[in-house]
């Protein structure tokens, strides 16, 4: 288990621990079942190619959920994820890693909570940002 992160310990510009998830066709089928999104472009290669895609593509919402997992693992057991927003600007193809990253853009205290605002995104293994977004998490205080 990672050591607990505290509000006092972080500052603007600091990066979130990167999460890398390989998305093979089995992962996309797990996601179809878990999310209820059974659109065939994500697991049926012939179907995907008939719609003009080069191959199956990673579900956008899976990338949103992976960004959520990155934040969950980063904030630790006493932290919580308050908001995750992202836009699906580029496609991620099957059988590649989706690399989730983030950096702190600000911190504030509101209604008794210690909130941290972040810029978050996913990258392809080639370094192309496909899913930019923003997030807010709450962290515990040492005091």
């Amino acid at each position: 288990m990672m050591a607990q992160l505290y509000f006092e310990d972080i500052s603007e510009g600091q990066e979130v621990t990167t999460l890398s998830q390989h998305c093979d066709s089995q992962r996309l089928v797990y996601w179809a079942a878990g999310s209820g999104d059974f659109y065939q472009i994500h697991y049926d290669k012939d179907f995907a190619q008939r719609t003009g895609l080069p191959d199956r593509i990673v579900h956008g919402a899976l990338k949103h959920a992976l960004l959520g997992r990155m934040l969950h693992e980063w904030v630790g057991a006493e932290g919580s994820v308050k908001r995750v927003a992202c836009q699906y600007r580029g496609m991620d193809m099957v059988d590649k890693d989706v690399i989730c990253k983030g950096a702190i853009t600000g911190k504030r205290s509101e209604n008794g909570e210690n909130l941290v605002d972040l810029e978050i995104w996913t990258e392809t293994p080639e370094g192309q940002k496909t899913t930019p977004g923003t997030a807010t998490v709450a962290l515990p205080s040492r005091s």
């Binding site: 719609t51 579900h59 956008g60 949103h64 308050k82 927003a85």
Partner: peptide
């Protein structure tokens, strides 16, 4: 045809 353009969830 439809594409998912983005998701924003606030808890």
């Amino acid at each position: 045809r439809i594409l998912n353009g983005g998701t924003d969830i606030e808890y």
